[in-house]
Design a protein around this nucleic acid. Structure first.
Lengths: 185, 185
DNA sequence: AATCTGTTTTACCATTCGGTACAGTCTTAT
DNA sequence: ATAAGACTGTACCGAATGGTAAAACAGATT
C-alpha cells in the first residue's frame, strides 16, 4: 500500500466550509483549489465526477456527523432531557454560534440541485421523528410531539439565518437555550 | 414624455422568481434574458449596473411589500390578534405554501454578498421589534415579547426551508397556523 | 536498477460568464 | 417631416467557468 500524501477525507472539512459559506454555485473549482492547495487535476483524482461529487461528499459527511451527534443521543434509551441537551450542545458546536449555515438547509434553498432532494427530505424527516419520539417519552401526546418537534427544528434553522443576518453569534446560542428549556418543560 | 414599452417594474416579478428559486450566483444573465424575453442589452438599459442592481431591486421591492403587508398591520393600532392574523395571511400568500423562499433569507445564507448585509439586518430587526410590540400590547412582558417574537420569525424562516425540503406545501401552512394560535394565546 | 502505483503538476479545452458596443427600430414631441 | 429619446437585438469582448489529458514525480516493491 502506497502512503497517501493527501486523502479525500482531509479535503472534506475545507470543502464543507467553502460550500457552507459561499453556496454551491458560488464556490468555484479555482477557489477550492486555492483553499486546499491542490491543483484541479488532483481534485479530480479524488472526485472524478467533479463538483457535484464534492458537494455529495460534504452532504454525506454531514449526514454521518448528524447521525452520530444528534440522532444517536435522540434514539438512545435514556432520560429525554439528556437526549435533548446533547442535541443542543452538538448543534451549538457544529454551527459555531450560527455563523455556519446548515449544509442541508443550503441545498434545500437551491432547487436547481434536485439530485439532493431525497437525502434532504430524509434528513429533516428523521430528525423530526427522532425528536418527536423523545418528546413522547417526556410525556407529550403523539400529535403534539410531532408538531412540537417540527417547530423546534424549524426554529433552529431559522435561528441560523437570523444569526447570520444579525452577524451576532449570541442570538443563536440564546435561541438554542430557549429551545432546550421549552422542550424539557 | 415617451411611452415606455417595458418598465423596470414589469421585470421585477420574474427577476424575483429567478433569484428566489436559483440563488444569486445560480442565476445567469442568459437565464434572465431567456425568462424575460429581453436581450442582455435591454436588461442593461433598465439595470445599468448589472446583476447586483437587479438583486438590489428585488430586495427593495420585497422590502416595500413587507413594509406594506406585514409591518403596516403590525404597527397599526388595533387588536393584537388582528395584526397577527394579517401578518400570517400575508406570509402565506407571499411564500405560496413555502415553495418560494424568502428573498432576504436567500441573501443571508450567502456571505459573499456583503453589500446586502445592512438591509438584511434591518429587515429582520424591524420585523422582530414590530412583532414584539404587538405582543406587549397582548399582555406579554417586554423581555418575553422580544424572545417570543424572535422565535416566531425564526420558526417562519425555518418552516420555509423544511417545506422546500419536504416538497409539501401543507407543512408551511400548518406551521403558520400553529404560530398564529401560539401568538394569540 | 527497474517497475509499478498513486499523486501532483502543467497546459489545455470548449463553454459560459458578466458586461459592452452599437446599429437599428419604435413612439412621441416639435 | 423630422429630430430626439426610449427601447431592442445582435454580435462581440476578455475573463472565468467546469473539466480533461498527459507528462512528471515520489515512494514502495521487486
Amino acid at each position: 500500500m502506497v502512503k497517501q500524501i493527501a486523502e479525500r477525507a482531509d479535503l472534506l472539512p475545507k470543502l464543507a466550509q467553502l460550500f457552507r459559506s459561499r453556496g454551491y454555485e458560488g464556490t468555484s473549482l479555482a477557489a477550492i483549489a486555492a483553499a486546499t492547495g491542490l491543483g484541479k487535476g488532483s481534485l479530480y483524482h479524488f472526485f472524478p465526477r467533479g463538483k457535484p461529487e464534492m458537494a455529495q461528499a460534504v452532504l454525506d459527511e454531514t449526514a454521518a456527523w448528524f447521525a452520530r451527534a444528534v440522532l444517536g443521543p435522540l434514539r438512545h434509551p435514556g432520560p429525554p432531557r439528556v437526549a435533548i441537551r446533547e442535541m443542543c450542545r452538538a448543534l451549538e458546536a457544529h454551527h459555531k454560534g450560527g455563523t455556519q449555515i446548515c449544509a442541508f438547509a443550503l441545498f434545500a434553498a437551491d432547487e436547481t440541485q434536485t439530485l439532493f432532494a431525497a437525502p434532504l427530505r430524509m434528513h429533516f424527516q428523521q430528525w423530526i421523528e427522532a425528536l418527536a419520539r423523545v418528546l413522547v417519552l417526556a410525556g407529550r401526546g403523539a400529535a403534539a410531539a410531532r408538531t412540537e418537534a417540527f417547530d423546534a427544528v424549524a426554529c433552529i434553522q431559522g435561528a441560523i439565518i437570523l444569526a447570520r443576518a444579525a452577524e451576532d453569534g449570541r442570538v443563536f446560542a440564546g435561541a438554542v437555550a430557549r429551545l432546550e428549556a421549552r422542550l424539557c418543560a
